[in-house]
C-alpha cells in the first residue's frame, strides 16, 4: 500500500504542514492527531464525509480557529503562534472561498471583488478597474459587475466569491466546496481556472469537494479524512483503486463500512418504542 511510503515529503517543500492536530469543539473531538502536507505548487483535494471537519481544517490554516494540540504551519510559520498583525499579513497572501460565498451584501459585485484591493493596495482607480474586470472575466461574470449579491444565483455568487479570492494573486487559495451549485458549463470554467492559476502563477490550491469526477481533473493529490484522522491519500486515480475499506466505502458509495452513515444515536427500535413493547 502506498499510504505510508508516500507520506514522507521534504519539509521545505510543503507549503502547508499539519502535525499532530487535535481539536475539540464542544464535546466532540473533530481531529485526533491529524498529519498532512500540501506541497508547494500543487492542487490538493481534501475529501471526507460531511461533518468530519474539512471546513474546520481550513479554518486552522487561516488562524480563524486555534488547535488544542499540534501545529499547522503555512509557509513555514506556525499559524496559531502568529501575532494578530503577522496573521493578517499571512491572510493577505491567502485567498479563501467560503462554503456559502459570504459576499458583502452592502456592495455590488464589482465592489465585492475590489474590496481586498481597496483595503490593502493603494492602486489608481484605472488599474483597480482593470484588475477587477479581468478577474470577473475569468469567472464569466464581467457583465454582472453592477448587480447586487441578492440578485445572484448560488452558483453565480460562488463564482464572484472565487474572483474575490484570487484578486490578489495569492500564494495559496483555499476552496471550500467550490463546485456546489455550478452548472456543467460553469463547472468546466472554474476547473480550468483553478488549473490555470496553478500552472501559470504557481498558486497552490487546496480544495474541499465531493465531486470525484471534477477532482480527478484538477487535483494532483487527494487526502481522505474520516473520524479525525487521515485514512487514505494518493493521486485521484490511484486512490480510487486502493483496496482499503475507507476508499471502498467512500468511492463505492456503500452505506456500510468504517464511516457510519448515521450520526451517533440510540437504538432505532428503542427510540421508536418497539423495544418497550417487546419487553
Amino acid at each position: 500500500m502506498t499510504v505510508a511510503s508516500d507520506h514522507q515529503p521534504v519539509p521545505g517543500d510543503a507549503l502547508v504542514q499539519v502535525r499532530g492536530l487535535r481539536t475539540q469543539i464542544g464535546a466532540k473531538a473533530i481531529f485526533d492527531g491529524l498529519d498532512l502536507d500540501v506541497p508547494r505548487g500543487s492542487v490538493t483535494a481534501i475529501m471526507g464525509p460531511s461533518g468530519t471537519g474539512k471546513t474546520t481544517l481550513l479554518k486552522h490554516m487561516t488562524g480563524q480557529l486555534r488547535p488544542d494540540a499540534g501545529s499547522v504551519r503555512v509557509d513555514g510559520e506556525d499559524v496559531a503562534r502568529l501575532s494578530r498583525r503577522a496573521l493578517f499579513g499571512l491572510r493577505e497572501r491567502i485567498g479563501f472561498l467560503f462554503q456559502n460565498s459570504a459576499l458583502l451584501t452592502d456592495f455590488n459585485v464589482f465592489e465585492n471583488v475590489a474590496f481586498p484591493l481597496r483595503q490593502h493596495a493603494n492602486l489608481p482607480e484605472e488599474l483597480l478597474r482593470d484588475i477587477v474586470l479581468t478577474k470577473l472575466q475569468a469567472v464569466g461574470l464581467r457583465g454582472a459587475a453592477a448587480l447586487m449579491p441578492s440578485e445572484l444565483s448560488g452558483g453565480m455568487a460562488r463564482r464572484v466569491a472565487l474572483a474575490r479570492a484570487i484578486v490578489f494573486d495569492p500564494m495559496l487559495i483555499l476552496y471550500d466546496e467550490p463546485f456546489v451549485g455550478l452548472d456543467p458549463i460553469a463547472l468546466n470554467q472554474v476547473l480550468r481556472l483553478i488549473r490555470t492559476l496553478n500552472k501559470t502563477l504557481g498558486i497552490t490550491s487546496i480544495l474541499v469537494a465531493h465531486e470525484l469526477a471534477a477532482i480527478r481533473r484538477v487535483a494532483d493529490r487527494v487526502y481522505l479524512i474520516a473520524n479525525g484522522r487521515l485514512v487514505a491519500q494518493g493521486a485521484p486515480d490511484e486512490l480510487e483503486h486502493q483496496d482499503s475499506p475507507w476508499t471502498r466505502q467512500f468511492f463505492g458509495g456503500e452505506a456500510d463500512g468504517p464511516v457510519p452513515f448515521h450520526y451517533p444515536a440510540p437504538d432505532y427500535a428503542t427510540e421508536l418504542g418497539f423495544a418497550g413493547a417487546r419487553r
Partner: peptide
C-alpha cells in the same frame, strides 16, 4: 461576512 472580512485581513 464577518469571517470573510477577517479572512481578507
Amino acid at each position: 461576512q464577518l469571517d470573510a472580512m477577517s479572512m481578507m485581513a
